[in-house]
Nucleic acid binder design. Structure first.
Length: 431
DNA sequence: GTAATATTGTT
DNA sequence: ACAATATTA
């Protein structure tokens, strides 16, 4: 049996069920496609992927390729559609089985369906949920239909009844003869239609993509500096790389698994200290799972104007409001500083995200999907479920039972009392 | 009807 | 600690 592993958002060799299973084949190859559709404009005119995440992804694939080579597995890399690439690979390498992570959002489903339609019917596909902390088989709900609409109800039931699986090991290496020399290349930013850039020295996310870098971040944030032990107290910070874990970016493309992080926290709690702060990182991983289950339950509604509530609010779509919000030219300096940070780095703190989202949808009353689409374009750590779920939540069409509106000046005085953050991004450029 | 008081959910 | 709802008086 010859196996192929098709990488999408599971770009790692550790705790990767699909890879581990594929490695049982006689011959094993791997493929990643930079899908041109991911770099085109969306319905709102934003490029679906901007330069910051694209670069992070390129670094991720380079690292994945190196780590797979250690296992004597070739990673073919293409700048083309999977439904074009995979049928050729299947034919040339006489592939019997294709292993991949299970996705469920409409665009991912459409691509998967095209691939199925374009390979011989005898080819077998095996998918696996590998992006969860609480595996769908282990949650205490009979069906996705019964996922609670209130986060706390979801969290408490999962914490009480759901076991968290152990991680899958790195597979054993194949024989060196399994490795096939190939000349496929990771595309450049220019080839993806994006401009090159130098990293802004003020960035809160000065990290590179890839599984090794994710592990380095854990080594640093958990073990070397012990900052995990202060996470709950510092996580609403705004400046610098260490106010929060920053693991979201590697989690989003699957360079590291939620379970790997969970078991590292457990180890830290055993060997160093267990406190509210260490728990809070797990708490945040549960939020991440929650939005995946919300999207499994509600499917395409997470992209609709009325959200999962079918709410009927008045929404504007003002070109000038959009331009001013994006450029950081609104009446709220705290919003402006955060929006400039996003435009210049591809990163914004969690505190900032909640504020600029609330301002956009609740204060300006603009179509919340425009805000969500802009975040999708810009964020290094974009994850479809967290992004659209959080935007629904902050826009009053999602899972917030209170439909809160942020008092922005108050938030600014609480979280940026001395104005350091606002100054960092708003002061006139010195020359 | 209003106003005080309790409950809810929280990144 | 808070703000939006729900309940009680």
């Amino acid at each position: 049996m010859n196996n192929l592993i098709w990488f999408r958002n599971d770009l790692r060799v550790t705790d990767n069920e699909s890879l581990l299973k594929a490695m049982n084949g006689n011959n094993v190859i791997a493929v990643y496609c930079f899908d041109p559709r991911h770099y085109e404009a969306d319905n709102f005119g934003f490029k679906k992927t901007e330069k910051y995440r694209a670069k992070f992804l390129m670094e991720t694939i380079a690292n994945l390729r190196a780590n797979l080579k250690q296992l004597n597995v070739t990673l073919f890399v293409f700048h083309d559609k999977p439904e074009v690439v995979l049928p050729k690979l299947v034919k040339e390498n006489e592939i019997n089985n294709i292993f991949l992570q299970k996705e469920w959002t409409s665009e991912e489903n459409a691509v998967f369906d095209s691939v199925i339609a374009n390979v011989p019917a005898l080819v077998n596909f095996e998918t696996a949920y590998q992006q969860f902390l609480f595996h769908p088989d282990d949650i205490p709900f009979d069906s996705f239909e019964n996922i609670p609409e209130v986060f706390t109800n979801f969290r408490k039931k999962c914490e009480k009844y759901a076991q968290i699986k152990s991680t899958y090991p790195i597979p054993e290496s194949k024989n060196p003869t399994n490795f096939i020399a190939n000349t496929t290349k990771i595309p450049t930013l220019a080839q993806l239609g994006l401009s090159d850039f130098t990293t802004d020295s003020r960035t809160a996310f000065p990290f590179k993509g890839g599984e090794d870098e994710a592990n380095n971040r854990i080594a640093s944030y958990f073990w070397e500096t012990g900052k995990l032990a202060h996470y709950k107290k510092t996580r609403n910070g705004l400046i610098g790389k260490d106010y929060s874990s920053k693991l979201s970016a590697w989690l989003a493309n699957g360079s590291i698994s939620a379970r790997t992080i969970y078991w590292q926290v457990k180890k830290f709690e055993k060997e160093v200290i267990k406190n509210q702060d260490t728990y809070w990182l797990i708490f945040e991983l549960i939020w991440r799972d929650y939005f995946k289950y919300v999207s499994l339950k509600h499917q395409n509604k997470i992209f609709h104007l009325g959200g999962i509530l079918n709410a009927d609010y008045h929404w504007d779509n003002a070109r000038l409001a959009k331009e001013n919000w994006i450029k950081g030219n609104t009446k709220e300096p705290f919003v402006n500083a955060n929006m400039k940070e996003l435009a210049l780095t591809g990163w914004m703190s969690n505190r900032g995200r909640q504020n600029v989202a609330s301002f956009w949808s609740k204060e300006l009353e603009q179509d919340w999907r425009i805000g969500a689409a802009y975040f999708e374009s810009m964020l290094i750590d974009y994850d479809v479920h967290s992004n659209w779920g959080n935007w629904m939540y902050n826009s009053g069409v999602g899972n917030d039972p209170r439909n809160r509106k942020f008092n922005i000046p108050r938030q600014a005085s609480m979280y940026d009392a001395n104005g350091k953050f606002q100054k960092l991004w708003l002061q006139e450029t010195l020359f």
